[in-house]
Nucleic acid binder design. Structure first.
Length: 812
RNA sequence: GCGAGGAUGGCGAAAUUGGCAGACGCAGUAGCCUUAGGAGCUACCGGCCGAAAGGUCGUGGGGGUUCAAGUCCCCCUCCUCGCACCA
């Protein structure tokens, strides 16, 4: 029995030490046992392990332990990957390499991880910041290059002037840099490497139907929006005079007879030739004024170019405008405006007095008369005033008219995506070097596979100028061209670290393979991941990239599966002071703070104990003591009842019933909904009852209770339980034990408690044997002493009886 | 604007299929134990009326369905998240 309040931290630490040589957790690939691969999207070594991470852990870890005790062959690698962005930025600020990557810091990180995760499998350690991992990142890059899935082009990139660096799309928040919320992101043109994720756009979209049920609907919706497929047509209008084509994208060719102008994005390449100096400056101003603003707040503005375009269907001449609401990055950067049937076009054309001409009528209505319109007219119906297509339904007209454009060679059916190819070039020190060499004669030359990995030089100076710091390291940059042998330059950009995280969970299955990224046979056994767990913040980026990688690896013949994870669980975020807990926000609460005070068991159990895992929590450590107290109560109860004293046993039945009811609840929860907060609550109820009945529990029942209690608590509080397990006289890890089966007979109540209501209000209760006849229950209810006063003098209208549960007497 | 989720005691919350609202924990109150208590144990703990027994009201607001509604339907308010001129 602990003497001091926080004594059992010592127990946990003892176990913490023993864990160092734990060897019992070894997955057995290709064994006959059913496999279960559970993985958390995990804390990366760039920041300290905080409460949000522990929450992620505790859920996955409890599940892994449960599955293991259920007899599954479990892989739960407890990964840590190399999202390094916060660290990089800290490093840039401090003008030194990120301290998080030093060996000591990595070692410290491992220690913390070990403290919380029993299953950190050292044989499977995958560190994405090590040369061996670079090798395979680079190997994949070269494979993609061979297949045309990686390419280089000049492109506009997001640029923060204050950070002096390129920003990934995900680091742009409302048009501004995520670290400088008042600094609009600029667009700069740079030579960049891209991965052709759009090659898989349709498959990424279509395969989501197979994920339904296993993945949260919310995540699937976000991915669908992100991919943003839309079917339509591209059609050429022709510049009046020169006949130069202006290609527009539309999903509604069928309304083209209602097009009353053509609008170009202000950045559209054609604007150069169309505009004179004055207008050009205005167009430029339009581009600039859009930067950094919430699109919803921007009023539509446009200017007339003074030029006209010819509608290829009607031959009509319509004005060409430039407007701020037309986006260069989507479709062709040019649209036809059909104000009568599109809200945005309507708003714009009204503002500038451009004609509104309806060409679609409702199936059973008339074509709208123009002057009275205050909002765009009906969207779908019958096409009118549209030449030979008049009278067709919208959908038919659309099909036939885009086919016509194809025949006449002035357009085609087209599918547009919001999804863009993935720009992976980063002008940063930390990241996998992109394995290519620039030769003045041979051009871009891939680094030969035998020369991989290209590794980062040790000593660099963080410049903070926005050019890769690697450019200043001559021994890195200057190489001989692998083809012709002449002096050449090595590529100095590094890869986006999302590259690392896109396939780390494959490497876990075969972490030390030095001839391949992994052995396909091992992947075939472990994949798909049975349960992936992580925060919803990864819904778009990581979870699309890793799906893309999976399909790419399948196509190069490495794996058979097309999706990485069968089921995805998104746990709620941990909020602190109104913001998501994250290092960049500076509001992290360290996991160690809690663990140092109460121990790792309390810390992990507490984060699960108040709220179901999918729900967001506003962090507070109020109440952690309750969890701590509870574990102390369990521990004391267990130890003081070894050996069990001879006692009456009059409470045996009651206690065993509660025990099995609790066990049933936990088992069901693990299998279905993971509401561990209520699981923990029910174990607390059990323990409260054990305290109340302690003196009346026989030695045999006590023994059984203590063993089972330990087993069912094991997934939640592994260290204390292991200790109790040994004090109970058992040997070896508690996880070698089978999860106890609940006994439905023992869990059953002797008698049903039947509630008596009068007009739906609770007025009394009675106990009755299960299956007691309706008539008997009703008779007893009507004569019940407590119920009588509410019935007397009134007329009983009817009686509703739910067997074993309730009698409701309706009176008037 | 569109989409999703949410609103229950002083607080975090539970109520899984329409059937006892508030499990469990925190905070609080009282008592026991103790040289001591920042430990432990026991009891109480939604509002109002009442000494108590008990009654009555009560799940964001309004209406409805039902013998019975936190739960189902309609309307409204507020909060959180995601998307947002995507043609």
């Amino acid at each position: 029995m602990p003497e001091k309040p926080y004594d059992h931290i010592q127990i946990e630490l003892k176990w913490h030490e023993r864990w160092q040589d734990a060897d019992f957790y070894k997955a057995e690939e290709n064994s006959a046992r059913p496999k279960f691969y559970v993985l958390e999207m995990l804390p990366y070594p760039s920041g300290m392990l905080h409460i949000g991470h522990i929450r992620n852990y505790s859920i996955g870890d409890a599940l892994a332990r449960y599955k293991w005790m259920q007899g599954f062959n479990v892989l739960h690698p407890m990964g840590w990957d190399a999202f390094g962005l916060p660290a990089e930025n800290a490093a840039i600020k401090n003008n030194r390499p990120p301290r998080e990557w030093t060996l000591e810091n990595i070692a410290a990180m491992k220690k913390t991880h070990r403290r919380f995760a029993f299953s950190y499998d050292w044989d499977r350690e995958v560190s994405t910041c090590e040369p061996e991992y670079y090798r395979w990142n680079q190997w994949f890059f070269l494979k993609m290059l061979e297949r045309g899935l990686a390419y280089r082009k000049r492109a506009l990139v997001n640029w923060c002037t204050k950070c002096a660096t390129v920003l990934a799309n995900e680091q742009v928040v409302d048009g501004c840099c995520w670290r400088h919320e008042d600094t609009p992101v600029e667009q700069r043109a740079l030579e960049q490497w891209f991965l052709k994720i759009t090659h898989y756009a349709d498959e990424l979209l279509d395969d989501m139907t197979g994920l339904e049920g296993g993945w949260p609907e919310r995540v699937l919706t976000m991915q669908r929006n992100w991919i943003g497929r839309s079917e339509g047509a591209e059609v050429d209008f022709h510049l009046d005079g020169t006949g130069e084509p202006i290609r527009v994208f539309t999903t509604r060719v069928d309304t083209i007879y209602g097009a009353t102008c053509v609008i170009l994005a202000p950045e559209h390449p054609l604007t150069d030739g169309l505009l004179d100096g004055d207008l050009k400056a205005k167009a430029k101003a339009m581009v600039d004024s859009r930067a950094g603003r919430d699109p919803g707040d921007i009023d539509k503005e446009g200017l007339f170019t003074g030029h006209y375009a010819i509608n290829p269907y009607s031959g009509e001449k319509v004005p060409i405008w430039i407007a701020n609401f037309v986006l260069m990055g989507y479709g062709t950067g040019a649209i036809m405006a059909v104000p009568a049937h599109d809200e945005r076009d309507f708003e714009f054309c009204r503002k500038y007095g451009i004609a509104v001409r309806p060409v679609v009528r409702p199936v059973d209505g008339e074509l709208a008369v123009e002057p009275g319109m205050t909002a765009p007219y009906c969207e779908y119906g019958i096409v009118e005033n549209s030449g030979q297509w008049s009278g067709l339904a919208s959908a038919d007209a659309r099909r036939q008219m885009s086919a016509f454009a194809d025949q006449q060679d002035f357009g085609k059916t087209a599918i547009t995506y919001r999804l863009k190819d993935w720009g992976i070039s980063r002008q940063r020190y930390w990241g996998t070097p992109i394995p290519v060499i620039h030769c003045p004669d041979c051009g871009v030359v891939p680094v030969p596979e035998a020369q991989l990995p290209v590794i980062l030089p040790d000593r660099i100076e963080i410049t903070g100028t926005g050019r890769s710091p690697l450019e200043n390291v001559p021994e890195f940059v200057n190489v001989a061209c692998p083809v012709c042998g002449k002096a050449a330059r090595r590529e100095t950009d590094t890869m986006d670290t999302f590259m690392d995280s896109s396939w780390y969970f494959y490497r876990y299955c075969d972490a030390h393979n030095s001839t391949m990224p992994f052995d396909p046979a091992k992947i075939a056994y472990w994949f798909e991941i049975d349960q992936y767990i992580g925060g919803v913040e990864h819904a778009i980026l990581h979870l699309i990239y890793s799906r893309f990688f999976t399909k790419m690896m399948r196509d190069i013949g490495l794996i058979k599966n097309s999706e990485p994870a069968r089921r995805l669980f998104t746990q709620g975020m941990v909020i602190a002071n109104g913001a998501k807990m994250s290092k960049s926000k500076g509001n992290v609460v360290g996991a160690d703070q809690l663990a140092d005070k109460f121990g790792a068991d309390t810390a992990r159990m507490f984060v699960m104990s108040n709220v179901p895992p999918e729900k967001e929590v506003d962090w507070s450590d109020k109440g952690a003591e309750g969890t701590y107290r509870f574990l102390g109560r369990v521990y004391r109860f267990t130890t003081r009842n070894i050996p069990a004293e001879p006692r009456s046993g009059t409470s045996d039945r009651k206690v065993l019933r509660k025990l099995h009811q609790t066990l049933r609840k936990i088992t069901e929860d693990f299998e279905t909904r993971w509401h561990f907060n209520t699981c923990i609550a029910s174990i607390m109820e059990l323990v409260n009852q054990l305290y109340a009945e302690e003196q009346e529990i026989s030695a045999e029942a006590m023994r059984q209770v203590l063993q089972t209690l330990a087993l069912m608590l094991a997934p939640f509080a592994p260290y204390v339980v292991q200790d109790m397990w040994e004090e109970l006289g058992n040997e070896g890890p508690v996880f070698r034990q089978r999860w106890p089966a609940f006994d439905p007979e023992l869990a059953k109540e002797d008698e049903a408690e039947v509630v008596i209501q009068v007009n739906g209000k609770l007025r009394g209760r009675m106990t009755a044997a299960f299956g007691t006849a309706k008539e008997e229950l009703e008779a007893r209810a009507l004569t019940d002493e407590k119920v009588k006063p509410f019935i007397e003098g009134k007329q009983v209208v009817k009686i509703i009886t739910v067997p074993d549960k309730l009698v409701n007497v309706v009176v008037k």
